[in-house]
Structures are given as C-alpha cells and as structure tokens.
Design a protein around this nucleic acid. Structure first.
Lengths: 149, 149
DNA sequence: GTTATTGCAAAGGCTTTGCACACTT
DNA sequence: AAGTGTGCAAAGCCTTTGCAATAAC
C-alpha cells in the first residue's frame, strides 16, 4: 500500500469520507516542501481539479489538524501556513525587520521540550516553531556600534 | 518625574506628538495585568474618553511596538494581545485542547536564546512567547493509558 | 504655520458558516 | 438509504487605509 493509500485509510478509519478533493488537498500538502497557505493549496488543487473552494481546503485542513496529520503556524505573513506534520520537526528564525527566514534544527529545542514535560506535565507541540527576532544583518543596521561578535 | 511622564518624554524625544488618546492608551496598557487586545484597550479608553477609535489604538500600539515599549503576541484567540514590554519577560504554555494557560518563567528560555545568538547571530525576541501543546489533564483525557509520570 | 494625529467610514485580508445539492459509504 | 462533504455566496473577524478636520509642536 502506497503512503497515499495509507493516509486515505487513516481518514476512513477515523470515520471520514474520502473525496477526490481531499485526496488532491492531501497530495498538495505532502508535495509542498515547507509551508503552504490555504490559498496556495487551493490554487494547486484547482489546476488539476477546478471549482474547488477555499472553504473545502480549510475544512479538510481542519480535519487533518485534528488528526494531527497537519500543523498550522502563524509566521507573521497574515495568513496561516500549513505543513504535513509527520515531517522532521524543524523551526524557523524569522527576522522581524527584513523577513529573512533561517531554519533551525529540532535539536535546539529538544532539551527545552523535555524540561517542560518533566516540570509541568505539559506536552508542547514543538513540531513547527516560529521564532521572531532580528537577524545579524538587521541588528548591525539598527545598532551599528553594537558588538555582535 | 513619574513613570508616566517618563514614557511621555520618550515619545516626544522620538519625534511623536503626545495626545490625550495616546496617554490613555498607554495607561490602559500599563495598568492591564497580562494581555490586552486592541478592542479591550479601546473599550477601557472610551470609558473615560469617548469617541476614540480602534484604529487610533492600533496606530498607537504600532508606535509603541516600534519603540519596543510594547509587544504583541498571537495566543490563538483570533486577535493579537498586547503587553507593556518592560515587564519581566515571561511566557505561556497554552493548552490547545482546553485553553488553559500556564505561565513559564524566562529562565527556561535563557539558555536557548543565548545559543541561538552565538550560533546564528540571531537575536530572538523572547519577551513573550506562546507555546502550544497539551496540558497534563488533556493528555490523560486523550491518551488514558499513556504513562505521563 | 507645519506636521503629525485623529475619527470616521470603508476597504482589505483571511477564515468561517448556512444552505441546498452531490457524493461516499 | 443515511449522512458526510461540497460549492457557492455571504458573513465574520481583526486589522489597515484614505481622507478631511483637528490638535500638538
């Protein structure tokens, strides 16, 4: 059974129906490298299967999120971006000034997640974290005399 | 000079004009314990000084944010929440299931921030972090047999 | 007097919802 | 047959913007 069929099975077993729209949305989400907005998914799906409405995309993403097969993140762009959840967890350093995005491996947050779990019994969802701040370049532009060594 | 006058001075020195609206908004922000939405600030201000528009609140918060006197955070409620920035940095563990919020001291993130600074030259804005996940209770409700010791 | 700031109203963007029809199961 | 899922349209929400009038400097 292909991985696509596997996901389809998961949906069915969760009591959901499998429609061509959902399959296309699923495929668009999995084929997207990185983040996709609902609008972009809708566009991609419509390229093959016209007349699919954004509301359907949102509704499907909602189902996937509840099944923990998709995650959504606010990366400050105004719209939420979605991602296939079972991917390798990774995070982003987003510069508030220039918008530059640096990827951050999960290892930087592992210890933190563990500590929160131990001390608070809280299971943080650190599959996809957006961390805002200033990149090196923008720091220098803003505070030219600061020592950024 | 009172702390209120201090802030007023900061604004003026940054080339901004000091209006009664801004003073009220500033006061509402500082008196709020914890987070406030723009709408709530507007309501509070209007109680004393009617006819203040939400747009004015947003514009003022924008100025304060650029001066790093206020922070905004998306806590998943649909609207952004604002906070007086010079407060002690602190963070929140927000349960995606029941919405319960636990406060998290800054010390949990200090090491992390430092490491990101050293290795990436990135200055993360960790004054107010929202971390989503599942609280102990909701984990047990969802996975009754999991070992959450 | 200049220039920033305000209020109002309207637009803007993303997301959600109501409803009748169609499709999966 | 039963019930979920769909498209369409419209509403909802928070936030931003244009503009003339106003107030701070």
């Amino acid at each position: 059974m292909t991985c696509e069929e596997e996901t389809a099975d998961l949906l069915r077993r969760a009591g959901h129906k499998l429609t061509p729209q959902r399959l296309m949305i699923l495929r668009a989400l999995r084929h997207a490298e990185g983040h996709v907005s609902a609008a972009r998914i809708a566009d991609q799906v419509r390229a093959v299967y016209p007349f699919v409405d954004v509301s359907t995309v949102y509704r499907t993403l909602d189902v996937l999120k509840r099944m923990r097969l998709a995650t959504s993140t606010d990366m400050g762009s105004g719209d939420a971006v979605f991602e296939w959840a079972p991917e390798q967890p990774h995070h982003h350093l987003i510069c508030s000034s220039c918008g530059h995005v640096t990827e951050l491996g999960h290892e930087y947050l592992e210890g933190f997640a563990e500590r929160i779990g131990n001390e608070f019994g809280f299971a943080p969802d650190l599959t996809h974290f957006a961390i805002f701040g200033l990149c090196r370049e923008c720091q220098m532009a803003e505070f030219p005399d600061a020592d950024t060594s």
